[in-house]
């Protein structure tokens, strides 16, 4: 993304470049949001729901979220399942292999906080956010595929606030939609972001 980053930084400094930048951001965010390819980091029970999500009944391909096992093809890592101390270095390494911009969905209680494996255990990492920046948390043990679907749509809203200027996007990234907030599709000003 080096070229895009340079372009964004250069445009930001150029007088009048902001207008081009806004249009560029809109195009980039639209294209990124519509094809969030998933890195299925499925380790335990939640992986079953992750698999079920991409097969016949729930069919996630229609959202443009195709599971790709190669981290170099992926935009969003879905950490589905318990992460143990033995597994954590591999997860971190796979995350580092993903190209920027990248997002992380923590699916299930184990990836959020350790869940049922919080107490009394010697080998479980209590939440994947101990070593990865998580964008969307999904609760549930395991969450239903619909919950993952909701997370993808929420993440898409968040992606739509990103800018290609380096530094600016990370700041915006932290503003997560509050639970129960209206969807983009709900409001009158639907901007073509519906699925």
């Amino acid at each position: 993304m080096a070229f895009v980053d340079d372009l964004g930084a250069a445009l930001d400094k150029t007088p009048g470049g902001g207008i081009i930048l806004t249009s560029l951001d809109a195009v980039m965010d639209w294209s990124r949001g519509k094809s969030l390819w998933m890195m299925p980091m499925g380790t335990a029970c939640c992986a079953m729901e992750l698999i079920a999500a991409s097969f016949s009944r729930f069919d996630f391909d229609r959202h443009g979220s195709i599971p790709r096992p190669d981290p170099r093809h992926c935009d969003v890592m879905v950490v589905a399942g318990t992460i143990t101390r033995k597994m954590a270095p591999a997860v971190k390494r796979l995350y580092e292999q993903m190209p920027d911009p990248k997002w992380v969905i923590a699916m299930g209680n184990c990836a959020v906080s350790g869940g049922i494996f919080y107490y009394d255990t010697y080998s479980v990492i209590r939440g994947v956010d101990e070593f990865l920046p998580v964008d969307v948390y999904i609760s549930g043990c395991p969450p239903r595929p619909e919950a993952l679907q909701d997370a993808i749509l929420r993440l898409r809203e968040q992606v739509a606030t990103d800018s290609i200027v380096p530094g600016r996007d990370r700041q915006l990234n932290t503003i997560l939609p509050t639970p129960g907030s209206p969807r983009k599709g709900d409001s009158a000003a639907a901007d073509g972001d519906d699925s």
């Binding site: 380790t43 335990a44 029970c45 399942g81 143990t84 049922i116 494996f117 255990t121 080998s123 479980v124």
Partner: peptide, 26 residues
Amino acid sequence: IGHLHRGIEKMAENRTYLQVVPLTDR
């Protein structure tokens, strides 16, 4: 193997007999 070793057998030692049932689910 062992990348998903969560120590369920150790956890069971500090739960009542009924509380172990959800652990066996996993």
